[in-house]
């Protein structure tokens, strides 16, 4: 079960999206997600959908990967849809006892759900096409101007790198400790809330101890490999803007402008 989580996992490839600078991708994702919120009409949604599909096609990622990204969040997606469909007021299409579905609600529901789905899809596109290290590199560089304001950009990036590296390891460890305690008769699944919270102690204590031990080991290993903070460090993969980034950014800005124009003229 724990092994199936794919969010934040890089899928190696050589598409144009893979080759883009992570800074461009991060900024573009942020801008696009905000821009989606300005789309309101059906026509503009069709436009957004077309663009999203085009970008996914450009990424050359297997479709099932994106489906996997959506799957763990289906409850939220269905919930969003339901809330809008069942609670909005307006022209009633169908009614049964106190439940009613309105035309406005259906419209809002579909649009909001689409918005959410695009949001998830775009952020997964970012993490699927960008290796975790390039992603943290990108964040580090983007935050660098704020270093003077006291934002520890290198340290933040290092923390993220290590977290990404160790999440799968700790998930495996959780699974192993759970099984070991279950073999000693522990029960994690039944009983009252208090009892269940208590039953987590035999899982959490070993997990924390293990995490601290790993942190200790890792600190020593990093020191042995001459790690001494961000100063004087170089990178194997330098980030550099290319024409690809300029072109991509221009396309994106054009798309955003079109969305804004559509909103302004309510197309």
């Amino acid at each position: 079960m724990l092994g199936n989580i794919t969010i934040g996992q890089y899928f190696p490839g050589d598409s144009l999206l893979h080759r883009m600078d992570p800074r461009t991708k991060i900024l573009a994702t942020l801008i696009y997600i905000v821009a989606i919120f300005f789309a309101q009409t059906v026509v503009s949604y069709l436009f957004v959908t077309a663009f999203t599909v085009w970008v996914i096609w450009m990424s050359k990622l297997p479709v099932r990967l994106l489906w996997n990204a959506l799957k763990p969040l289906w409850i939220i997606i269905v919930f969003t849809l339901a809330i809008h469909v069942f609670t909005s007021t307006g022209t009633v299409l169908w009614q049964w006892s106190f439940i009613h579905i309105t035309k406005e609600g259906l419209q809002m529901g579909v649009l909001m759900t689409a918005r959410l789905v695009y949001l998830i899809l775009f952020s997964s596109l970012l993490t699927y096409t960008t290796s975790p290290i390039r992603l943290t590199d990108g964040i580090e560089r983007l935050l660098r101007p704020f270093q003077r304001l006291g934002v520890p950009s290198h340290e933040l990036a290092m923390m993220m790198t290590i977290a990404l590296r160790f999440i799968p390891t700790l998930l495996e460890e959780t699974d192993r400790i759970m099984k070991a305690q279950e073999s000693r008769g522990a029960d994690f699944t039944t009983g009252s809330l208090v009892k269940r919270a208590k039953s987590m102690v035999p899982l959490l204590v070993p997990l924390f101890i293990s995490a601290f031990r790993r942190a200790d080991d890792l600190a020593v290993a990093m020191e042995a490999r001459c790690y001494r903070g961000g100063e004087g460090r170089t990178r194997m993969k330098e980030l550099c803007y290319t024409r690809l980034d300029t072109v991509s950014m221009s396309i994106l800005i054009l798309v955003v402008l079109i969305i804004l124009v559509m909103r302004f003229y309510a197309v």
């Binding site: 890089y10 290796s131 975790p132 290290i133 790198t161 290590i162 990404l164 590296r165 031990r213 790993r214 080991d217 890792l218 290993a221 990093m222 490999r225 194997m236 993969k237």
Partner: peptide, 10 residues
């Protein structure tokens, strides 16, 4: 506990 990065070559 001695591998820092999430990709081998990195």
């Amino acid at each position: 506990n001695q591998i820092v990065a999430a990709i081998v070559e990195e």
